[in-house]
Design a protein around this nucleic acid. Structure first.
Lengths: 164, 164
DNA sequence: GTCGATCCTGCTACAGTATAACGTAACCAC
DNA sequence: GTGGTTACGTTATACTGTAGCAGGATCGAC
């Protein structure tokens, strides 16, 4: 693998339009089916996350919402992001105080997030083994599990290649 | 189990003094052995965390440092906490933007933290299964693992009992 | 068709968390 | 005792997140 392109080119690329439209359509369908309201603000916030393709902060989302004429105050972004996270369309990346579109909405919450500390890219995977291990750990302590937060911080393949 | 006491009594209790002294002595020994400097500020910060017995924010630590005549500005607390976290004497609790003393310093980093959303208590456990699962997930994606962040949010036994 | 309940938005204000940057002091090796 | 390194003190500021209230949209019950 040559690393030439990875150095200069912003990470999120390839067939953006298709995927963005696909995710939005899916979200619309799913919200309609569940009685959720994918309002313009929420829809646009999701579009921003999907287009970005990596973890971005709430205030970055807010800036873009403002550019598009949506409200320009923090609660606007946080409400929209809270909705997306609560309903499985996005994930909060605790390691970065940031948000990323869910790449597999409609399936599996409690993902394992592989977070690149260099470029902010987030790969979303699943691990039943990890999930079960956490459930077991909680049970062993009499702890009532409500939510799990599993993130792996490191370097994505492209950035690992670029680093000496 | 009767929940009578758990309702009124602040969570951290039982033989504080012994344990605090024990942890501090251990930290001194270990720092001396590793060429690390457990300065007064760092030592006091660790003492604060151990005494507290649950997750508290950097600014709470800062307030107590100030009361004791240590510097009263944010970097003072953050530097001390960074030192403690970097050297395994404390953990950062991402789910709460808070810090907690490591209950098992000298062994095993990358713990699984069971975080009570009600009282802030943190129980520290380990799970080789989870650790291996995350390693496998990272390898499968060509991701270079540097650090893991595993937190389980829910209710500790005492709080689960208290909640209707 | 309108009333009320509910959800969503717009907005102000503020609370809480974290870091940049720079100068000074203490310590250690040589 | 000079220079490198590490830690501290301080100012200022950036970043992240929430409380709370007023008003508008939506929808079901009647």
């Amino acid at each position: 693998m040559t690393s030439a392109t990875a150095v200069d080119v912003p990470r999120p690329v390839r067939r953006q339009g298709d995927r963005v439209a696909q995710v939005l359509t899916f979200a619309e369908t799913r919200c309609a089916a569940s009685g959720l309201r994918l309002t313009p603000t929420r829809r646009r916030a999701l579009e921003i996350l999907v287009t970005e393709g990596r973890a971005i902060g709430a205030y970055a989302v807010l800036d873009r919402l403002r550019e598009d004429g949506f409200g320009g105050h923090p609660p606007v972004a946080y409400r929209a992001l809270d909705f997306l996270v609560a309903n499985g369309f996005a994930h909060r990346v605790e390691a970065r105080n940031a948000y990323v579109a869910c790449t597999d909405p409609g399936r599996s919450h409690n993902p394992v997030l592989l977070v690149c500390r260099a470029c902010g890219m987030v790969e979303e995977t699943r691990s039943n083994a990890a999930k079960e291990a956490l459930g077991a750990a909680a049970r062993a302590s009499g702890f009532q599990l409500e939510d799990t937060l599993v993130e792996v911080v490191g370097l994505c393949p492209a950035c690992a290649e670029d680093m000496p």
